[in-house]
Design a protein around this nucleic acid. Sequence first.
DNA 1: GTCTATATCCCGATAGAC
DNA 2: GTCTATCGGGATATAGAC
Lengths: 202, 202
Amino acid sequence: MTAARAKPYHHGDLKAALVDGALELIVERGVRRFSLAELSRRLGVTVAAPYRHFASRDELLAAVAVRALEAFGDALAAPSSELDPPEERLAAMAAAYVRFAAEQPELFAVVFGIGLDKKQRYPELRGTYEEVEGMLDACVAELCPDDADAAEQLGDAIGAAAHGYAALLTDQPGTPDPADVDRAAEQAASATRALIQGRGAL
Amino acid sequence: MTAARAKPYHHGDLKAALVDGALELIVERGVRRFSLAELSRRLGVTVAAPYRHFASRDELLAAVAVRALEAFGDALAAPSSELDPPEERLAAMAAAYVRFAAEQPELFAVVFGIGLDKKQRYPELRGTYEEVEGMLDACVAELCPDDADAAEQLGDAIGAAAHGYAALLTDQPGTPDPADVDRAAEQAASATRALIQGRGAL
DNA sequence: GTCTATATCCCGATAGAC
DNA sequence: GTCTATCGGGATATAGAC
């Protein structure tokens, strides 16, 4: 915002500007239509410039995915109160999972929709992903304090169900109908309760 | 297979050849790297030729997706026996759902991974999709013969959980570790049983 | 070291000739 | 129905200016 310098970038902040700009452009146009060329044009920079900071388009996307995952983690943490019992915190997290996917479909897609390697190739991304997983796990652990294996099974099941509702909702192009979002969020919360209740079968 | 004609295509079967060839190419290279240009080259045809049969790349992909969905439906139908109780048929379907995604990740991706509009734009795709959904619904209906709403909730939950396990497994690039596939398939089956058992909470 | 300029190669799509 | 030619766009590599 400060117009103190005529050339705000071009000396050391191009990397940050690329990540910021990519995030904006992706939210506007969608990941699939995001291009380094357009981003470079927007930043008033040559198409080759980004390659001084990121080895490939995917590496820039991985940096964006870290930001997206942080926002996702915040969205999961927000609705649950310390006062609630763990069952209801988990249900709220599942609903928030679906809502985030529906409200920020392009950010969700950067993380889960373009086959970015979260487990091997990009360590920072992996770390952030595991932090988010940890939020679920911590909550499940309170429910199964004496059985780590049962906790893992239940955590996986709740995560899978929430992810399934989110992915099926996001699967269709365009912004989903708000009524469908509400419905899917409530279904994810209910499925969480059902899994907890029926967890003897896991 | 019959070598009766020297030029099997090039006069009326290019359309079928395109779908067949696209399916092969996608399995080999992945949907994201699939290109009309390479397909045309393989079929010994100009890049413009496919446009006489499909208005766009996506329209060809939709035709491929119909085939992929048919294979998916077959995979879901195979493991369940008429003799099994509905609970176990549903568990088997959930496991088969995950196995199909893991064993044919590129076919799964054509249907669920590239944002192809299954509900509006491609009617044939929509119909095939609904047929597959119907397999699940029919099975769930046996469990809740008197309550259509409960059946829908349970069907959605089982579908979402299976889809979640499948999507999270397929999310990573490359072929998944067979041990992870077995594990996820069993987890999907267990989650199905848990949802049935805890369905009072839905 | 960071960016510009340029060039290569691939792709999707379209117009018009045969 | 297919081919030739062509447009616009994008990812990426390299060479060289600052």
